[in-house]
């Protein structure tokens, strides 16, 4: 599957099938700090992603607090 990452924007290929939870675990991404987007909607941790899927892992953490 194609995985799109942000900040900085980059793409990588991961072999599927894989659950969202397993994908984040492999990438060592804390699930609390991202959304996983497939198409125009979000997917939960238990969703199984196939080899042909395209997903975006979008960080949600904003800095710059006073």
């Amino acid at each position: 599957m194609k995985v799109v990452l942000r900040n900085p924007r980059r793409e990588l290929e991961m072999p599927g099938p894989l659950t969202v939870a397993a994908l984040l675990d492999r990438l060592e991404v804390n699930p609390e700090s991202v959304l996983v987007i497939q198409g125009d909607t979000l997917v939960t941790r238990d969703v199984r992603l196939s080899d042909t899927d395209i997903v975006e892992i979008r960080p949600v953490t904003s800095g710059g607090a006073e």
């Binding site: 609390e32 700090s33 991202v34 959304l35 987007i37 125009d40 909607t41 979000l42 979008r58 949600v60 953490t61 904003s62």
Partner: peptide, 9 residues
């Protein structure tokens, strides 16, 4: 902030 980002999406 995961919820506010999800809200926007």
């Amino acid at each position: 902030e995961r919820e506010t980002a999800a809200y926007c999406v």
